[in-house]
């Protein structure tokens, strides 16, 4: 186990990314100090790293201390989910459902249903943790906000299709960057994979949609692709939602097991009374 794997495991139960990142930085700083002290005492660098890590004990013990069952949705999550919802509601009133609405709805579900980390990637150097689905949702939220502003300001919707393609490019760049930066310990969940699977449909549909607005010659192409795109997006969105539900159930099960284990520990350590 490396130091990064250790801090990752030790902070696995912390729900807040920002808080987990802070604890990871602190633990790494502690390990660094321990290692320096050992080196100053004449221990070899490699051995010092190993010994420092061993002195920390089992990361599960630290993780257990931070374990708190998630009981409520955070305000930030609600705001983030609210903006795309508002955007999609306005769009739905303005025009029939299209790619944008699907995308925004999927992103909203991602925020609400997300039980923990879907695709978490750590930037150890910065002591940061970024969650791919949160980033993607963040992009969707920005887009939703832009839609709201566009609709309310009366500019019209020529920028709408452009936003689809811009969001698509940004989303893919984020995904590619996260894949490139992926560190040991991060995991691909069915939810994350389903989200990825929806992106090619978004690419095809989004491009066609954009081109049809740019040049009416592409309108036929868009009309032909519309049902295909919708079907793919719907399928991916369904898998995404089901995968997330499965993750939520697993997380709840784990919470029950954890609570039972804690109860059992308390009972076994309680003084016996005759």
């Amino acid at each position: 186990m490396t130091q990064f794997e250790f801090v990752e495991r030790a902070t696995a139960t912390i729900a807040s990314n920002r808080r987990a990142s802070m604890v990871r930085r602190e633990l790494l700083s502690h390990l660094d100090m321990k290692q320096t002290e050992l080196i100053e005492n004449g221990i070899d660098v490699v051995d010092a790293e190993k010994l420092a890590l061993e002195s920390m004990g089992d990361p599960a013990i630290i993780a257990d201390q931070y374990y708190l069952p998630r009981t409520s949705l955070k305000l930030g999550t609600l705001i983030l989910a609210g903006i795309p919802l508002l955007g999609s509601a306005i769009l739905a009133l303005q025009s029939p459902p299209d790619v944008l609405i699907w995308m925004i709805v999927v992103a909203t579900i991602a925020v609400i249903a997300e039980p923990g980390a879907s695709l978490t990637v750590r930037f150890h150097g910065l002591g940061q943790t970024l969650n791919a689905s949160r980033l993607l949702v963040g992009v969707s939220a920005l887009e939703g906000l832009a839609q709201v502003i566009i609709m309310l300001s009366g500019i019209g919707s020529p920028t709408g299709p452009l936003l689809v393609i811009v969001e698509f490019i940004i989303s893919w760049l984020i995904v590619l960057y996260l894949c490139w930066q992926r560190q040991p310990g991060s995991r691909w969940t069915p939810g994350a994979l389903a989200w990825m699977a929806s992106l090619p449909f978004l690419a095809i549909g989004g491009s066609a949609f954009w081109l049809s607005h740019w040049n009416s010659a592409f309108l036929v192409w868009w009309e032909q692709l519309r049902s295909f795109t919708m079907m793919g997006m719907s399928l991916a969105a369904s898998v995404f939602v089901l995968a997330h539900l499965w993750e939520v159930i697993q997380a709840l099960k784990a919470r029950d097991v954890h609570a039972s284990a804690k109860r059992a520990t308390r009972l076994s350590s309680a003084p016996q009374q005759d």
Partner: peptide, 23 residues
């Protein structure tokens, strides 16, 4: 004081407003 006790404890005390941490 093991690390497994120390850091969660520090963060708990910080949450309660008994201590303040800064980098």
């Amino acid at each position: 004081l093991q690390e497994g006790t120390l850091y969660p404890l520090l963060h708990n005390l910080e949450k309660k407003g008994l201590i303040v941490g800064e980098w």
